[in-house]
Write a protein that binds this DNA or RNA. Sequence first.
DNA 1: GTAAACCTTGCCCCGGACGTCAACGCCAGC
DNA 2: GCTGGCGTTGACGTCCGGGGCAAGGTTTAC
Lengths: 135, 135
Amino acid sequence: MRIGELAERAGTTTRALRYYEQLGLLPARRAVNGYRAYDEGDLRLLREIRTLRDAGFGLEETRPFVECLRAGHPEGDSCPASLEVYERKLAELDDCIERLREARARVAGQFERAVRARDDLAASEGSPQCELTEE
Amino acid sequence: MRIGELAERAGTTTRALRYYEQLGLLPARRAVNGYRAYDEGDLRLLREIRTLRDAGFGLEETRPFVECLRAGHPEGDSCPASLEVYERKLAELDDCIERLREARARVAGQFERAVRARDDLAASEGSPQCELTEE
DNA sequence: GTAAACCTTGCCCCGGACGTCAACGCCAGC
DNA sequence: GCTGGCGTTGACGTCCGGGGCAAGGTTTAC
């Protein structure tokens, strides 16, 4: 299988595949004419990479999974190194979620305060009866 | 006040201040020798920028707040444009948090599945009495 | 035979928020 | 007068995951 077919079957692009090869993540055999040649095993590896990336893993973080599969294990996460990456990623996600939740709370607090300040101002200086002017 | 003092008082760097000026976010007066000259008002603006950035706002998103302050309003969020940015950011944060939570759940599920697979394998082929070999 | 569709390498491009030089000007203290 | 510590501009680097294009070779379909 050539690069275009593999890319299409995995739902990615030829550009991404060349990039993965450049990183040594998914090296390709070569046909006599120089074209990259892939097999079904490469498709499996590539799907592993894409699945992990969709879950927020960086390319380097997918490497243990890919090497685990290449070593003949049934799943990419059948190796201790992959489990460690899982654990690190979980901690990282938890940390990130927590920071975002804090930021969310700060912004929500500021937003509500600002809205109250605006409404207070409108009530004190403007037309208080406006509550009923629109149906 | 010159750039170094302002940077230090706001807890940022001179490089960031020059960058903000380049964006037109925090323009500086100039002393006769060409040095940037700032006052307490600029410190206020800069603190607004830093606070918003710490809460996850991009620099362009801080612009309405800064312009609101410069227009003479008591707070950066005393203007409708700032409130709109708050609302957009809240929606963005909610969306981001939700996506991270989903990713977290997927990773946790995979992790637990992989750990179970490992333990099952160890129990079936290895030494089952290992549960008690370490104190 | 020839045009379209594929492949190759190599190179520069993106965004966001700066970091990190280089090469120089200005000013204070001793 | 000299050193050290400020300041200036400009330009390039960083991180990450590729996108896009050019100039050429190859294969496929008609």
